[in-house]
């Protein structure tokens, strides 16, 4: 089942992307992965899995972490690149700004 196409209305397509961010953030494990990625950029799957256990006491298989990373990457919250032969993951907070813009912080505005 594909997602309904919103491509004909740019504004709606944009909102579709933000909805993905909400889905990505809904899972506690994925929020913990984002926490892990705040420690430093360019972490391998192995490092993320190790930090989840060591720093957060969350025991997940590498397969599960890999699937969560795919969702986060789809939502634009994580970017990945290859350095040498290893794939490294970095937090990208830009999609969160769309949320902040939608509900601006009253105290800072």
């Amino acid at each position: 089942m594909g997602k309904p196409s919103l491509a004909c209305k740019p504004g709606l397509a944009y909102r579709g992307r933000v909805a993905d961010v909400y889905d990505a953030l809904a899972a506690p494990a994925r929020r913990a992965i984002l926490d892990v990625l705040t420690v430093r950029d360019d972490q391998s799957l192995f490092e993320i899995t190790t930090r989840l256990l060591g720093d957060h006491g969350i025991s997940l298989t590498r397969q599960a972490v890999s699937q969560h990373l795919a969702v986060l990457e789809e939502a634009g919250l994580v970017s990945s690149r290859r350095q040498g032969r290893t794939r490294l993951h970095t937090l990208d907070t830009r999609p969160l700004r769309a949320i902040a813009r939608r509900w601006p912080d009253k105290e800072s505005s």
Binding site: Q43, S44, F46, R62, G84, R85, T86, R87
Partner: peptide
Amino acid sequence: RDALVSDGIP
């Protein structure tokens, strides 16, 4: 080895 190194596994 490629699969292990890609995921950063020692």
